[in-house]
Amino acid sequence: MFPKLDPLLHSELRLAVMSILAGVDSAEFSYIKKQTGATSGNLSVQLDKLSAAGYISVEKGFKGKVPCTTCKITPTGLTAFENYVNSLKEYLI
């Protein structure tokens, strides 16, 4: 019996965001957008979903005079991501 994959992570853009955030302290919206090639609107929606699930924290602030949104993976998000990767392994073995 295969384990059920976390539906929140089993989506290309959300998984890409989590993969980026798992390897860094925190990342700005512009960096995630560049790395994923997603549109601002779509990325915002997906970040909101991850944030609502408690997988990431989103901080809105300013860098000088420019608005800046910073995302950071939470311990809950990291655990969910690890579980997701472990479940994937079982599918592939």
Binding site: S11, E12, L13, R14, A16, T36, G37, A38, N42
Partner: peptide, 10 residues
Amino acid sequence: NNIENKEMTA
């Protein structure tokens, strides 16, 4: 380098 929010295989 353009990721949509669609479902995918393992």
